[in-house]
Design a protein around this nucleic acid. Structure first.
Length: 822
RNA sequence: GCGAGAGUGGCGAAAUUGGCAAACGCACCAGACUUAGGAUCUGGCGGUGCACAACCUUGGGGGUUCGAGUCCCCCCUCUCGCACCA
C-alpha cells in the first residue's frame, strides 16, 4: 500500500471500475425496498460550477447511504438541454445549438464522472433528444383533447429588433435585455396550459407535503393566491350592460362611493361614447397603457384616473355610483372592475382624496369614532357595521356571509373564489425548443398532428445540422398539407417553454428507454414518487409548481398513480465566496475542475459537506479545503500504519479491555449512533463528519494507535471507513480493499451500534447552586438520585459555597445534574 | 406592506429540543521533531482578571422557570419571496 495518499491514482482506479462494473444500475422493477433520490438536472451551460458540486454531492451521499441501508436506489442524471443560451451561443460562435449543446453535455458528463457520483448512467437523458420530446408532443395532443392546452390571444412583451417575445424578467426598464431597444406590448396568439384547473388541488395538497421546507410551501401558497369573497353585478345606468366586481370585503359594500375600471376593461371603450368625457377617457387609456409598460420596476405609482361620465347602481342600496377609469386596477386579477370603498381601502382612499370623492365610514372599529372628514388613511380592520341598511349593528366579519347570502337570494351576486395563479403561457418564438405539434389550416382551423406522425422533428438537428432560424422563418418546415383536408396548410412555429420538459423528466427516468409511450406504467408505479429531491430554492415556484401540475395531470390521464411528485424536498443554500455569490463579474469564481485536480474529488466533496449544513449558504474557504484534505491524509496514514490489526480476526471481549481500548470501543459505537442520527434526521453531514473526526481523534495519532487492542482497533477503523464511505467513496473503497476486505465497501451494510457498547460507565454530573455551575462529580453510570444528592452536598466546593445555608429544594435530573436551590 | 427564514468566539459552525454555551474544523499562539517546513505531532485559544478565585457572554429589552441560545411578549438588524391581488 502506498505510503502517501495519492488521490489521483485512487480516484482514477475506482472511477474506471465503476465505469466497467456499473454497480449503481437498477432495474425498472425493484425487488426490495425502493428509494428514489434526485438532484435537479443541470442546464448544459458548458462547465459545472460549485453549486452543481454541492447539489450532486449531497444527493450522492444520500444515494450511497440508502444503498448501505439496504434500499434499491434510483439515482439518475440527465440534461435540461433546450433553451435560450444555446441559441445565443449559436449566434455568437457560429455553431449550431445542437452541436454546442452536445459538446457541453460531453464535457460536463466527464466532469461529473470525475466527482465519483453514483448515477445509473444507463438512464441518462437529454430533453433535446427527439426520443424525449416526442412523448411531450404526444402528451400535448392528449391535453388538447381534454382542453388542458388551448390557444388564445394575449398581450406580450415584443422586441422588434430581436423579433421575439420576451419573458417579463428579460425586460429591463422597458427595454430588451440584449439589444436595449424599447419593448412594445403586442397582442399575440399563443398556447396555454390550463394549470388553473388544478389551482385548488395544488393549494390543498401543499398540506400533505410535510417533507418540504415551510418557506417553499409559503411561496407556493402565496403564488396560487386564493381569495374568497363576493362577485356582484352593478347595473350600468341607462344601459343593458352590467359591471361585475369581485371583493373580499362584502361587509363594506354600503361604503361604495365610486367604481374603478382597469384601462383594459372591455366596457371602457364604449362607455363614454357620445359624452363630453369620451376624448379624455380614450387619452387616459392610451397614456396609462404606455406608462404601465415602463413602470414595471417602480412601485407605488400615484393613483390616477378619469371620470367616464356614466353611473352604475349599487344593488344593495340603489345608489348611483360614478364610474372611473383608474390606473391601479388590474385587468388580470378578479374582474378588472373594483367597487371603491375609500373609508376601508387604502388605494381607494388615496384616489378619493385626490379626486375629491366622498368617503363614507361603514365599519366602526371597537372603541373608535371614525369621521370621514378627518381620516388620514383607510381603516381596514373589523368593527361594527354602520350606515349599512338592514346589516347595521352587525359585527363586520360575521356579516360577510349574510351579505353574500342576500346577493344570492336576490340574484345579483354570488360567492366567488379567485386565484392569482394564471394559466401557463408555453409558446416561445425561439428555435431551440420542442416544436408544438399542430397545423393551422385555413379551412379546418387548428388541426393536431396525427399521433403516428410524431415526433415533429426540430428541423436542422440531423447528423449534418442545418439552419437554426426560428421556425416561423423556415418555409420548408412550415409548408405542410392539412392532416384533415389535405390542402396546403402551415405548421405551428412556436416551440415549448423549456419548463415543459423539466416538468416530467423525473417520471421519464423510471423507464427512459421506453419506446411506446411517455412512461412504462409499471416502472413508474414501482419508483414514483421521488423520495428525496434536492436543488436550489430559486426553483421554489416555477419548476416545482409546474412539476406538481404535470404529476396531477398525468395521474388524471392515467399514466401514473401518485398525487405528488416529490415527497421530500431539500433546498440547498448557495455557494458563496467572501460572502458573495460566485460570479464572473465579481471575479470570485472557484472552478470545481481545478479544485478536483488540485485536491481530489473526495476532498472537495468532504469540504462542501463539512463547511455548512446543506440548507444553509456555504462560504467557500480555501483554507477549509486544506483542513478537509489534512483530515483524509491523517485517516490514510492511520490505516496505512496499522494494517496489522486487520489480520486479527478475533472477537472483541469488552470485559478484558484496558481503559484506553475500552474508550475507543465505546466511542466507536457512540459515533455510529451519532452519525446515523445526523444523516437520518436532517442530512446534517457537517455534524456527521465532526463525529467521525472525534472518533479519529480518540483512536489517536497514526503512530500510537497501535497500542490499542487489535480487535477494537480493527472495528474502529472499519467503522470510520463505513461511515465516511457515502461522502468520500474512492478514498474509503481503496482503504477497504487495502486492508484486506474482499467485498466492496459499497456492498457492505451500514454499521449497527450496540447500545450496551455505547453506554458510558462514568458520568459527569453537574452540580449547580441556584442554577449556576459550581462543581462537577464523576460518578458511576447507575448512581441513584439519593446518592447523587448526598454526593453533591458532600462536595468540598459546594460546602464552601453553601457556607452553612440550608437548601430550600434540591432538583436532581437523572444522569445530568443536581441543582441546589437556596 | 404581506409571507418565510436568520442573528452564537477572529471565521465556518455545534448544542442529545428546557439542563456544563462554543463540539468539530479554520485561523492564530507556544512547544517537539527537523538542514529546512506552507509536512507531521503535542498543548493553548469567548471576554474582564496574574496563572487562582470570581464575574460577564448566544442582536436588544422584559417575562415564565430551580434552570433559557432553546419557551412567551415587545423591539432592532439582515436575507429571500410576493407586491396597487380589491
Amino acid at each position: 500500500m502506498n505510503e502517501r495518499y495519492d488521490f489521483k491514482a485512487i480516484e482514477q482506479k475506482w472511477q474506471k471500475r465503476w465505469q466497467e462494473e456499473e454497480p449503481d444500475r437498477v432495474p425498472d422493477a425493484p425487488t426490495g425496498k425502493k428509494y428514489y433520490v434526485l438532484e435537479m438536472f443541470p442546464y448544459p451551460s458548458g462547465r459545472i460550477h460549485m453549486g452543481h458540486v454541492r447539489n450532486y454531492t449531497i444527493g450522492d451521499v444520500i444515494a450511497r447511504y440508502k444503498r448501505m441501508r439496504g434500499y434499491e436506489v434510483l439515482h439518475p442524471m440527465g440534461w435540461d438541454a433546450f433553451g435560450l443560451p444555446a441559441e445565443n451561443a449559436a449566434m455568437q460562435h457560429g455553431v449550431h445549438p445542437v452541436v454546442w449543446t452536445h459538446d457541453n453535455i460531453d464535457h460536463m458528463r466527464t466532469q461529473l464522472k470525475a466527482m465519483g457520483l453514483s448515477y445509473d448512467w444507463q438512464r441518462e437523458l437529454a430533453t433535446c433528444d427527439p426520443a424525449y420530446y416526442r412523448w411531450e408532443q404526444q402528451l400535448f395532443l392528449r391535453m388538447l383533447e381534454q382542453g388542458l392546452a388551448y390557444r388564445r390571444e394575449t398581450t406580450v412583451n415584443w422586441c422588434e429588433d430581436c423579433q421575439t417575445v420576451l419573458a417579463r424578467e428579460q425586460v429591463i426598464e422597458g427595454a430588451c435585455w440584449r439589444c436595449d431597444q424599447p419593448v412594445l406590448p403586442r397582442l399575440m396568439a399563443g398556447w396555454f396550459f390550463n394549470i388553473t384547473r388544478y389551482a385548488e388541488e395544488l393549494l390543498r395538497d401543499l398540506d400533505t407535503l410535510s417533507g418540504w421546507p415551510e418557506r417553499v410551501l409559503a411561496m407556493q401558497r402565496n403564488w396560487i393566491g386564493k381569495s374568497t369573497g363576493l362577485a356582484c353585478d352593478f347595473q350600468v345606468e341607462n344601459s343593458e350592460e352590467q359591471i361585475t366586481i369581485f371583493t373580499t370585503r362584502p361587509d363594506t359594500i354600503f361604503g361604495v362611493t365610486f367604481m374603478s375600471l382597469a384601462v383594459e376593461h372591455p366596457l371602457l371603450k364604449s362607455l363614454s361614447k357620445g359624452l363630453p368625457q369620451h376624448e379624455a377617457v380614450q387619452a387616459f387609456i392610451q397614456e396609462t397603457i404606455i406608462a404601465k409598460q415602463r413602470a414595471s420596476l417602480e412601485q407605488e405609482t400615484e393613483k390616477r384616473g378619469v371620470f367616464t361620465g356614466r353611473y352604475c347602481i349599487n344593488p344593495y342600496n340603489g345608489e348611483r355610483v360614478p364610474i372611473y377609469a383608474a390606473n391601479f386596477v388590474l385587468m388580470e386579477y378578479g374582474t378588472g372592475a373594483v367597487m371603491a370603498v375609500p373609508a376601508h381601502d387604502q388605494r381607494d382612499f388615496e384616489f378619493a382624496r385626490a379626486y375629491d370623492l366622498p368617503v363614507r365610514v361603514v365599519v366602526q372599529p371597537e372603541g373608535e369614532n371614525l369621521q370621514a372628514e378627518t381620516m388620514q388613511e383607510a381603516s381596514i380592520g373589523p368593527g361594527l357595521l354602520v350606515n349599512s341598511g338592514s346589516f347595521t349593528g352587525m359585527e363586520s366579519e360575521a356579516a360577510q356571509q349574510l351579505i353574500i347570502n342576500h346577493a344570492e337570494q336576490q340574484g345579483f351576486g354570488r360567492s366567488h373564489i379567485t386565484y392569482k395563479l394564471r394559466d401557463w403561457g408555453v409558446s416561445r418564438q425561439r428555435y431551440w425548443g420542442a416544436p408544438i405539434p399542430v397545423v393551422h389550416c385555413a379551412h379546418c382551423g387548428i388541426v393536431p398532428v396525427p399521433e403516428e406522425e410524431l415526433p415533429v422533428l426540430l428541423p436542422g438537428t440531423g447528423t449534418a445540422p442545418g439552419t437554426h432560424q426560428p421556425l416561423h422563418q423556415q418555409e420548408d418546415f412550415l409548408a405542410v398539407q392539412c392532416p384533415a383536408c389535405g390542402q396546403p396548410a402551415r405548421r405551428e412555429s412556436d416551440t415549448f417553454d423549456t419548463f415543459v420538459e423539466s416538468s416530467w423528466y423525473f417520471i421519464r427516468y423510471t423507464s427512459p428507454g421506453h419506446d411506446t409511450g411517455l412512461v412504462d406504467k409499471a416502472a413508474a408505479a414501482s419508483w414514483l414518487p421521488v423520495d428525496q429531491y434536492i436543488g436550489g430554492v430559486e426553483h421554489a415556484i416555477l419548476h416545482l409548481l409546474y412539476s406538481r401540475f404535470f404529476t396531477k395531470m398525468l395521474r388524471d390521464l392515467g399514466y401514473i398513480g401518485v398525487d405528488e411528485p416529490f415527497t421530500n424536498l431539500l433546498t440547498q443554500g448557495m455557494v458563496l465566496k467572501d460572502g458573495f455569490k460566485m460570479s464572473k463579474s465579481k471575479g470570485n469564481v472557484e472552478d470545481p475542475s481545478t479544485l478536483i485536480e488540485q485536491y481530489g474529488a473526495d476532498t472537495v466533496r468532504l469540504f462542501s459537506l463539512f463547511a455548512a449544513p446543506p440548507e444553509r449558504d456555504l462560504d467557500w474557504n480555501p483554507q477549509g479545503v486544506e483542513g478537509a484534505s489534512r483530515f483524509l491524509a491523517r485517516v490514510y496514514r492511520l490505516i496505512a500504519l496499522n494494517l496489522g490489526c486487520f489480520a486479527d480476526n478475533s472477537p472483541i471481549s469488552p470485559e478484558n479491555l484496558d481503559p484506553d481500548s475500552r474508550q475507543v470501543y465505546r466511542k466507536t459505537h457512540q459515533t455510529i449512533r451519532r452519525v446515523s442520527d445526523s444523516i437520518e434526521s436532517n442530512f446534517h453531514f457537517n455534524t456527521a463528519i465532526a463525529g467521525v473526526m472525534e472518533l479519529v481523534n480518540t483512536i489517536g495519532s497514526p503512530e500510537e494507535a497501535g497500542r490499542c487492542d487489535a480487535a477494537v482497533l480493527r472495528q474502529s477503523l472499519e467503522t470510520v471507513l463505513m461511515l465516511l464511505f457515502p461522502m468520500v467513496p474512492h478514498f474509503c473503497e481503496e482503504l477497504w480493499e487495502a486492508s484486506g476486505h474482499g467485498q466492496r465497501l459499497a456492498q457492505t451494510a451500514w454499521p449497527q451500534y450496540s447500545a450496551e457498547a455505547a453506554r458510558e460507565e462514568e458520568l459527569t454530573i453537574v452540580v449547580q447552586v441556584n442554577g449556576k455551575l459550581r462543581a462537577k462529580l464523576q460518578v458511576p453510570e447507575d448512581t441513584d438520585d439519593d446518592t447523587l444528592k448526598k454526593l453533591a452536598l458532600q462536595d468540598e466546593k459546594i460546602i464552601q459555597f453553601l457556607a452553612g445555608a440550608q437548601a430550600k429544594k434540591i432538583i436532581v435530573v437523572r444522569k445530568k445534574l443536581v441543582n441546589i436551590v437556596l
